[in-house]
Design a protein around this nucleic acid. Sequence first.
DNA 1: GCAATAGTTCGATGATTGTCGAACTATTGC
DNA 2: GCAATAGTTCGACAATCATCGAACTATTGC
Lengths: 102, 102
Amino acid sequence: MPDYPAPDMKDVELVDVMKALADPVRLHIVRVLADGEPRSKTLDNWDVDVTKSTMAHHFRTLREAGLTLTLIDGRRHEIQLRRAELDAKFPGLIAAVTAESD
Amino acid sequence: MPDYPAPDMKDVELVDVMKALADPVRLHIVRVLADGEPRSKTLDNWDVDVTKSTMAHHFRTLREAGLTLTLIDGRRHEIQLRRAELDAKFPGLIAAVTAESD
DNA sequence: GCAATAGTTCGATGATTGTCGAACTATTGC
DNA sequence: GCAATAGTTCGACAATCATCGAACTATTGC
């Protein structure tokens, strides 16, 4: 019920967003989340080759940087990109990093 | 005359661009260079509080990540953002990170 | 040639980070 | 209550990185 704390968007700095995106696993997560829909944190969802604890670390990093929210429902956690807020604060950024390039 | 080697844009990966931008000094440099015009590497140009050798490290990092070119003219070096190439490969990215946010 | 200038490279240092396994917490279903 | 499930936290480890000063390279102007 009490979801994990995420920073106020007004306190989110671009350089910290960039740091959060400067890792292949996290960049992949954000791309999957690009549509703004929440997704379960279950490993199967992500098609990455790291352990649960490593994923927990990346989820936390994204949340603390201001990129995502964690929604808790019982023992199920969902992660969601703060798409609208990010678009308002950093216009075009999410679109640019989630566009597929050749 | 022989400028420093920079990667082919086709070999530039987004995650490496993000890593290059995930530092306050380098992000600042890129913002200054946003217009695509070359600028001398002279310390005075950058209004940052680091030494010459640290700046040389950041200039090299940006170049090797594919973000900039170094133009050499005698003992004068200029650095230039590869604006058009970056815009073609990662549309909207440079605009997003160089926009000033409130 | 020589002093000054512009910038790079080298080696060291401390801080941060990505990764893992193991232990832990909390929830569900029986 | 208890076993199973979903996920986090902790401690450790290796790798990377930002920073600096000192030494170095190359060019200019006299």
